[in-house]
Design a binder for these strands. Structure first.
Length: 416
RNA sequence: GUGCCUGUAGCUCAGUUGGUUAGAGCGCCUGGUUGUGGUCCAGGAGGUCGCCGGUUCAAAUCCGGUCAGGCACCCCA
């Protein structure tokens, strides 16, 4: 059998988990401070939950979902993102009388993509969703929360907030029609890919990287001309709110969300430091989503952030997340080992990280203590047992003192 | 899904125009210390050269395929 993980998946050992947890715990703490309580939805859902909400033309639905029928014949999909699942849970629990609602989540997502740096088939996201706030204050709140998470990870200054509006449905339909009209006139000159986009998702042509496409795009109609006055006012209010909070952003008229349920505000925090997969947090408003799923019309806005990407950036902006430094216990002989096993139990129940290696002579045990970065070693042999003390060694200075066994916990408690 | 690059010890990498037993540093193990780590010194273990096939008297080296990783496209977190 093959012993390697499936393509696009990785094993996370303790060192990796500390990096991930630092991201998730920072985000969780700030989210709770904003009143966003953590929730969790199932890792798999009925396929319709995603297929009917993310849009028939989105890549995520058409070619990236892990879909299978279970033994009961149900069509099941491993969640490619979590907003649809949270919305489904909100509808399922009939929470429309409890609005506004604020949720935080963290967990694995699955997309069948070609792996590269910052892109895996199983990856992890943190995210927040805010239901029931129709006005721009909601957009401002979730963006401010995202900025705070990045600040908490010491990386806010390494990212740029890009902001755009997708308008309301009427604005978007009118603009889409205008684009199709314009690009159809230049159809033959467009790249093959963009010709395909023309029917599937004309907005995508706007951010094509093909040189010839860009020339044509330069002459394309601007969205702002098709924005309804309500949508324009909404966007202006979001920008004003960000200005009021001192949150810097760049207008990016080409920023388009990939998932169909977005409207009005779309935003991304991007960085240059991670290569091509530079989006670290992305989100926007999705007022239509709950209705599409058959729930009571409920406005929503939120974002998701990639834990792997955030952790990679954190590696550049923060010192390593080291394991706690333990006290290392080093017994010599069976009697001492029994006594130290008791002591280990007592120290741990006092909350003092304690290691005992279970094998080796004193030399090996001291080597292990150094490797674990222990601040203190406790050496116990027949000599110490006879006197009722232990030899306590400061690993940094090498200084050793005798400490009565019954005073050890109190003596070591101050460290950690 | 497309294109380009890469794959040699646990890790990071050398390896000449194809030519005897494939090397280094770090890490690991042993000893220098019957009860003392990290430093230092000496020694040692560890490799189907990603995998499959081909060319050749001879392949880590050349060719094809495949798998995996990286980069870009695409997409997005």
């Amino acid at each position: 059998m093959s012993v390697r993980p499936v393509r696009g998946t990785v094993d996370l050992f303790p060192e990796d988990m500390r990096r991930h947890r630092r991201v998730a715990e920072t985000a969780r703490g700030i989210a709770e401070c904003y009143g966003y309580g953590e929730m969790q939805t199932p890792i798999f859902e009925f396929t319709d939950v995603f297929a009917r909400t993310l849009g028939d033309v989105s890549d995520v639905v058409t070619k990236e979902m892990y879909t299978f029928s279970d033994r009961g014949g149900e069509q099941i999909t491993l969640r490619p993102e979590n907003t649809a699942g949270v919305a489904r849970a909100y509808i399922s629990a009939k929470l429309q009388n409890a609005l506004p609602l604020k949720y935080f989540y963290a967990g694995p997502m699955f997309r069948y993509e070609r792996p590269q740096k910052g892109r895996q088939r199983q990856f992890h996201q943190i995210g927040v969703e805010l239901f029931g706030v129709p006005g721009p204050a909601g957009d401002v709140e979730v963006i401010a929360l995202a900025a705070e998470v990045l600040r908490g990870l010491n990386m806010l200054d390494r990212t740029t907030l890009r902001l755009n509006t997708l308008g309301d449905a009427a604005s978007r339909d009118a603009y889409r029609a205008a684009l199709v009209d314009y690009f159809s006139g230049h159809r033959a000159a467009l790249s093959e890919e963009s010709q395909e986009r023309l029917s599937r998702n004309p907005l995508r042509i706007l951010d094509s990287k093909d040189a010839d496409d860009r020339k044509i795009v330069a002459g394309a109609p601007s969205f702002d001309a098709y924005l309804s006055s309500e949508a324009a006012d909404f966007f202006a209010a979001v920008r004003q709110g960000l200005d009021d909070l001192g949150i810097a952003y760049e207008r990016d008229p080409l920023l388009v969300r990939g998932l169909d349920y977005y409207c009005h505000t779309a935003f991304e925090f991007v960085t240059e430091a991670l290569g091509a997969q530079g989006t670290v947090i992305g989100g926007g408003r999705y007022d239509g989503l709950v209705g599409i799923m058959g729930g009571p019309e409920t406005p929503g806005v939120g974002w998701a952030g990639g834990i792997e990407r955030l952790a990679m950036l954190a590696d550049q902006t923060m010192p390593p997340a080291d394991a706690p430094r333990p006290v290392a216990l080093a017994p010599i002989g069976e009697a001492a080992e029994r006594r130290l096993l008791q002591l280990a139990f007592a120290l741990r129940s006092a909350g003092i990280p304690t290691d005992i290696g279970y094998s080796g002579n004193l030399k090996r045990r001291m080597a292990r203590a150094a490797k674990l970065n222990a601040h203190t070693a406790v050496i116990l042999g027949d000599d110490e047992l006879a006197k009722g003390v232990a030899t306590v060694r400061d690993m940094a200075t090498g200084e050793q003192t005798d400490v009565p066994l019954d005073a050890l916990a109190a003596r070591l408690g101050g460290r950690a």
